[in-house]
């Protein structure tokens, strides 16, 4: 398809173990245009692994195999590690799940953002400091001067995540892979972070892969949604039609959510069918 930023075909992620090879991702195919693509599923469904595999961040002994992962016609799977470093951060950026492990615990937040900014831009320390303050303000952090002086352990989870997003947006990437960027945030801040990402997709034509376990959020925010179970895509649908999804797994997930407008005595618990994990993956290539 023309205009696709990223084309992933038949992606596998394998981990050899004592009990044979474990397939974390099994034959996933999708394309990403200038859109917001959501990937949902439970933990262990392979959604984060899919995101990491695109950036080739899976460490040995993990194995990534794919027919192609092409970014503007360049196959990332065949790229040298040296050239891959130019892709990471600059062209495809990733916001990881847990800010606690993404930030350096022994350096102040300010120094980390300044370092990230100066790595990509030729700027003086004073300029970088100003820019960092702006970035923190852009992700709606109150009192950015205090945050610049603070260490990561002094931050709440939500603030840490916003700091990570601020750092990732500095190099102005073409594709942003956001791995549960808002699951640690509360609804009102969530909205602000999503608005920031939304603006980037609309104004800069950025492609966004939004990995989340929050079905309502994805239905609300994304354009297309892939639903993953046990390393496969079980269903692809337009985000606004997610609530009419057919697959029993998707239905089960939707039903297990508590809802304010429909109070229930007990929540429905998902009943798993072993059939779901053997069924072939649905392709989401356009």
């Amino acid at each position: 398809m023309m205009g696709a930023l990223l084309d992933v075909e038949n992606l596998w992620v394998k981990f050899p173990s004592r009990n044979g090879v474990f397939d974390a991702v099994r034959g996933v195919s999708f394309t990403l245009g200038r859109e917001r693509l959501g990937i949902v599923g439970e933990s262990g469904s392979g959604k984060s692994m899919t995101g990491r595999a695109i950036l080739r961040l899976i460490r040995p002994p993990g194995i990534v195999e794919a027919d192609q992962i092409s970014l503007d016609g360049v196959d990332l799977i065949k790229l040298l590690e040296k050239d891959m470093r130019a892709v990471r951060g600059q062209r495809i950026s990733m916001v990881m799940q847990d800010p606690k492990f993404s930030l350096n615990p022994v350096t102040t937040i300010g120094n980390q953002i300044i370092e990230a900014y100066r790595l990509h831009n030729n700027a003086s320390k004073a300029q970088a400091y100003q820019k960092s303050l702006e970035m923190l303000e852009a992700v709606s952090i109150r009192n950015p001067e205090r945050v610049m002086r603070a260490y990561p352990h002094e931050m709440s989870g939500g603030m840490g995540q916003r700091i990570m997003i601020a750092m990732m947006l500095i190099p102005n990437p073409e594709i942003l892979i956001a791995d549960e960027p808002t699951s640690a945030l509360d609804v009102s801040v969530q909205r602000q972070v999503l608005d920031i990402m939304d603006k980037l997709v609309k104004e800069r034509g950025m492609g966004l892969i939004f990995i989340s376990h929050d079905l309502n959020l994805v239905a609300d925010f994304c354009d297309r949604v892939l639903i993953m179970y046990a390393g496969r895509i079980v269903e692809v649908c337009d985000a606004d039609k997610l609530h009419e999804a057919q697959h029993p797994y998707t239905r089960g997930l939707l039903n297990s959510l508590p809802r304010l407008d429909m109070p229930r005595e007990r929540l429905e618990v998902l009943q798993r069918d072993p059939e779901w994990s053997v069924a072939p993956s649905v392709s989401a290539r356009l």
Partner: peptide
């Protein structure tokens, strides 16, 4: 996960009923 969340919330509701507990619950949800 949401599917596990449902299990834990059901468990907490059951425990409260059977043991007569008082809950103070913090959540952003």
């Amino acid at each position: 996960d949401v599917s596990v969340q449902a299990e834990i919330l059901n468990l907490l509701a059951d425990l409260r009923a059977s043991r007569g507990l008082t809950y103070l619950m913090v959540s952003h949800d």
